[in-house]
């Protein structure tokens, strides 16, 4: 009979289940892919530094420290186009970059802090939503728009303002000018940059003010504080780091801006501290200006300039990020 086909040694003992936290193969693959994707930013940033350094290496070595201390940027060629001599120095451009960015931050930060405070503690409901939307929209505007707006609309006005400032405040060294040329000055570039960085600085400051602990705000009110007293005693100390970080972030953006500065700034290879005088420098704009006619050798110089700009903005941004990240946690 067929029924007798029973297993000989009773029911089979199941093998012991292995309990493990070891992920399955599919998960291992998934984690590998995601980690690789996650590290893409590291790889790209690394590649940028490596390739710019590789291309600019030759110039950096030949020029040495004079790349950062000299202000001339010229290549002298003979009639056939052979390079006779060259001198690449970034000093004027670096000074100009920092100067314009500083003007931008000095102008933008008070405005940004005022609007961030207003949006957080004064505006309500629809007005608040509208203000946030408009500032965010402004952050999405392309830089070329700011550039040409600055050139066509702001420049004539700023020339007149410069004249007034020079007339009444000319005794302050940075507002004095050697010749009354106010067109395309660092001051104008700084103002255009200020308009560009107001949104980002406002957004960072607003986010930090928004996180002000409610209990402290209410405690201040319960002690009889007016709104301003509350802001001064609670919100400003709490958000100080955020404001500084937002300003640094704005500084980084302002230093790296190309097109908007190029349109409104007169690039001169000479260190100029007179902000109203129509002569300035900017590393990014120099690259754009020289790029079109540059020969291979000069391109190498421009790559070195790009590397300097990249490292400068990277440093400022990391510092800003560090400051913003630290404030959130520290309870005051």
């Amino acid at each position: 009979m067929a029924i007798t086909e029973k297993p000989a040694e009773g029911p089979a003992i199941p093998t012991r289940r292995v309990i493990t936290t070891e992920p399955r193969l599919s998960d291992k693959v998934f984690r590998g892919i995601v980690t690789a994707g996650g590290l893409s930013s590291l790889i790209i940033l690394g590649l940028i530094a490596i390739f710019l350094a590789y291309q600019g290496y030759e110039i950096l070595v030949k020029e040495g420290t004079s790349f950062f201390t000299s202000s001339t940027w010229e290549v002298i060629t003979d009639d056939v186009g052979e390079v006779q001599s060259y001198d690449f120095g970034l000093a004027a451009m670096l000074v100009g970059t920092v100067l314009c960015a500083l003007i931008a931050v000095i102008v933008a930060v008070p405005v940004a802090v005022a609007s961030a405070l207003f949006m957080t503690f004064y505006a309500q409901g629809k007005i608040k939503a509208f203000l946030i939307a408009v500032i965010d929209l402004m952050a999405a505007f392309p830089s070329i728009l700011f550039g040409f707006w600055g050139f066509f609309i702001l420049m004539p006005k700023v020339e007149y303002w410069s004249l007034l400032i020079n007339k009444y405040l000319g005794w302050i060294p940075i507002f004095s000018v050697d010749a009354k040329i106010f067109t395309r000055s660092p001051f104008l570039a700084g103002l255009v940059l200020a308009v560009m960085i107001i949104p980002i600085t406002t957004a960072v400051a607003r986010e930090v003010f928004d996180q002000t602990p409610l209990d402290r705000i209410q405690a201040a009110y319960a002690l009889g504080a007016t709104k301003w007293a509350m802001i001064r005693a609670v919100a400003l100390p709490y958000g100080r780091g955020g404001v500084v970080g937002g300003a640094m972030l704005g500084l980084g953006r302002a230093m790296g801006e190309t097109v908007a500065v190029y349109t409104v700034l007169n690039i001169v290879y000479q260190i100029n501290w007179q902000v109203l005088f129509g002569a300035g420098g900017n590393v990014a704009s120099l690259i754009l200006l020289k790029f079109g006619e540059a020969k291979p050798l000069e391109i190498k110089g421009l790559m070195a300039a790009g590397l300097a700009l990249f490292l400068l903005t990277l440093l400022v941004n990391l510092l800003a990020d560090f400051i913003v990240a630290r404030t959130g946690k520290k309870g005051r």
Binding site: G38, L39, L45, M255, G256, L314, N317
Partner: peptide
């Protein structure tokens, strides 16, 4: 690497646009 990656993404958002162009060239 969460922390460094978040840091680097932030840093990358601040890369000047002209540097991106220069990088592709180089």
């Amino acid at each position: 690497f969460s922390r460094p990656v978040r840091f680097l993404v932030q840093a990358m958002s601040g890369v000047p646009s002209i540097v991106a162009g220069l990088f592709i060239m180089s």
